[in-house]
């Protein structure tokens, strides 16, 4: 060290102290952020923790899911999502050591987590969890398109709208006149206008809610994926209502949620 005397010793120490002080503040800051996330791992909260009108969620029966992907396209038809944006996907999980690579099909919408890791990171609060029903939404007019939320979501449930179009829209067929009913905003995707350049995600088709925020299955005001499901594997409903189909299923059946260890507490359950 003496040989390469870079700093005068006193100066060096001073310098280090300065760096250290800065780092300390950074550390405190980031640990504060982390705390907000980690606290939920320790506590187990009852489902109706939040005082709110509805607690929407899904219970997806993996035994009934046949992997047909009707949900993927029903969602596309409902929300008019562009190429590469798919609010729900069906993936084939090949469990290790399962003979013959026999797959398990899982459809995966946004989980509308109780402790979403995506909303807290948004620098402009454009994405947030709605108080009234727990649905995680994106305010297209506010979103700046930084995509931090996409990196923060552990379930890849968020999609960036790059502005690409299907041939039917590129070639100006009648279909290009149809707007997306999302958030009851009825936007048409136009060059450089929202939702192009925004992060997009499943909304549990909240545009089908009535004034009071209720869905109605009989009238077809129900998430598009659940409506079309060929195996009738996707159950949707209000966990606050003890007599709803979803509440009954959670009571009666065995289920898992994905990546429990992250403490996000998804509102989508998989029956096994």
């Amino acid at each position: 060290m003496d040989k390469h005397k870079i700093f005068d010793r006193r100066e060096f120490v001073e310098y280090l102290i300065s760096i250290g002080a800065g780092s300390l503040v950074t550390a405190v800051l980031s640990s504060g952020l982390l705390n907000a996330k980690t606290s939920s791992i320790v506590e187990t909260r009852p489902l109706n923790r939040v005082k709110r009108k509805y607690h929407y969620g899904m219970v997806i029966d993996t035994r009934r899911c046949v992997g047909c992907r009707a949900c993927v396209l029903a969602c596309k038809a409902e929300n008019k999502t562009p190429p590469g944006v798919s609010y729900t996907v069906v993936f084939e999980e090949i469990l290790e050591n399962r003979p013959n690579d026999k797959p398990v099909f899982m459809t995966k919408p946004c989980f509308h987590c109780e402790n979403p890791s995506c909303t807290d990171v948004c620098p402009v609060s454009a994405t947030y969890k709605r108080e009234q029903d727990g649905i995680v939404v994106v305010d297209y007019d506010r979103c700046i398109g930084c995509r931090y939320c996409m990196t923060a979501c552990p379930y890849s449930a968020r999609w960036f709208d790059f502005g690409e179009n299907y041939p039917a829209i590129e070639k100006d067929t009648d279909w290009s006149k149809v707007p997306s009913p999302e958030y009851k905003q009825f936007r048409k995707r136009e060059h450089e206008k929202s939702p192009i350049g925004n992060v997009r995600k499943c909304t549990f088709c909240l545009h089908l809610q009535d004034e009071e925020g209720k869905y109605n299955k009989e009238e077809g005001r129900w998430p598009a994926c659940a409506k079309t499901c060929t195996g009738k594997a996707i159950h949707f409903g209000d966990f606050n209502d003890p007599n709803s189909e979803v509440s009954i299923l959670l009571r009666e059946r065995q289920y898992i949620r994905l990546k429990e260890e992250l403490g996000t507490s998804p509102n989508v359950y998989y029956l096994i």
């Binding site: 990171v121 948004c122 620098p123 402009v124 609060s125 506010r142 398109g145 930084c146 960036f160 925004n198």
Partner: peptide, 26 residues
């Protein structure tokens, strides 16, 4: 250039989210 909406960079100042490390960074 990386922002989806370059014209909205100012949103960070108007709609702050103090929970976001990115906001702090900005």
């Amino acid at each position: 250039a990386d922002l989806g909406h370059m014209g909205r960079a100012w949103h960070v100042m108007v709609y702050p989210n103090f929970k976001s490390p990115m906001a702090w960074m900005i």
